[in-house]
Design a protein around this nucleic acid. Structure first.
Lengths: 193, 193
DNA sequence: GTCTATACGCCGATAGAC
DNA sequence: GTCTATCGGCGTATAGAC
């Protein structure tokens, strides 16, 4: 059995450490020396795997966006009604927040445009486009209220994302699942008929 | 008539320029030299008015938070029911976003904790505490659903803030007022009985 | 591919004349 | 109080041995 994963081991270690540092201290407060200290990988080696510091953040960003994208795709495939899909996406986001808070932190709350040159705002990234489409379909099938799909998306996910943010900031102290039902209910109401 | 405002003219110029630069490029992409270029005020003079670069951001942050705080106070004073207050706050935020987008950008969407040492997360800052209190009162008076007041706040303002964010990012292209009614409606539904 | 050592520019901050 | 000139250090990035 081939041992494929070994190949890019260092690269992954770098990305993993960078993610933690970027979310803990922020991109600009994290030096390549920090990544070196955290991983034990020398700066020279780090720069062998990535052209520069920005490239690390870029790789991270696109990897995580892609993963999120696929998850949404999968939900779309396995759920047929808008209400089921929406509920599944909320569950996904909550679960991800519990299991990998740095991932959500980085995707949702870091200001990518400040350190990634020529990157579009998150709200026009692929996963968000997909979410808008789901909203549009829900309107066409008469499941949700008719409105600008991007506004619908803003309303629905505004609730969810803000709850996640306040949880990560320590303001909503209980485990996230305990808020799940109420958040879901509130979010759905924003787009319900 | 004394000409009081003249006294702190430079200080204000510095703050105004810093606000624009911080929101346009981000705190870390803004050097004191940038502020110098934008204002014509020398670095020496800038450092005469502020101990360091962080102090500029700090002053800015507290000034703007205070202003927001007073506006909310005023709304609380002049409106008696929760629904009126909530509506007035949405209007305030939308108006502010149109008239001074940098202010909202800086208050709502910059990551203060990355450049202000020992600063609490925004969600526990004074204005947000006030908003939670309003929610609590609304529950006591039976105007809105009973739930954790911070969760209520997250739901209601999640909708509003996300709409503002998407507008500032250029995704919701029309003037903000045109979304006002729908956003209000969606936000209120999250906490309505 | 990984390391150590180092170059070098930028930026925050200060000194000191006016 | 405002300016010009300058310093010190940090952090990105490279050179080059292994």
């Amino acid at each position: 059995m081939a041992n494929k994963p070994e190949k890019a081991e260092l690269r992954d270690d770098i990305l993993k450490a960078a993610l933690r540092l970027f979310t803990e201290k922020g991109y600009f407060n994290t030096s390549v020396a920090d990544i070196n200290r955290k991983t034990g990988i020398s700066t020279g080696s780090i720069y062998h795997h990535f052209h520069n510091k920005e490239a690390i953040a870029k790789a991270l960003y696109h990897d995580l966006i892609d993963r999120l994208n696929h998850s949404i795709e999968e939900i779309r495939r396995t759920h047929k009604t808008t209400i089921e899909r929406a509920r599944a996406i909320v569950d996904l986001m909550f679960t991800l927040t519990e299991q990998a808070p740095e991932v959500m932190q980085f995707i949702l709350f870091s200001r990518h445009q400040e350190f990634l040159s020529d990157e579009k705002p998150m709200s026009s990234a692929a996963p968000f486009e997909k979410l808008c489409k789901l909203m549009l379909e829900g309107m066409d099938s008469g499941e949700i209220r008719h409105m600008d799909p991007r506004l619908a998306s803003a309303c629905f996910f505004g609730v969810v994302i803000r709850a996640i943010q306040m949880h990560l900031e320590g303001v909503l102290e209980k485990p996230l699942d305990e808020y799940s039902n109420e958040v879901w209910r509130a979010a759905w109401r924003t787009i319900d008929l």
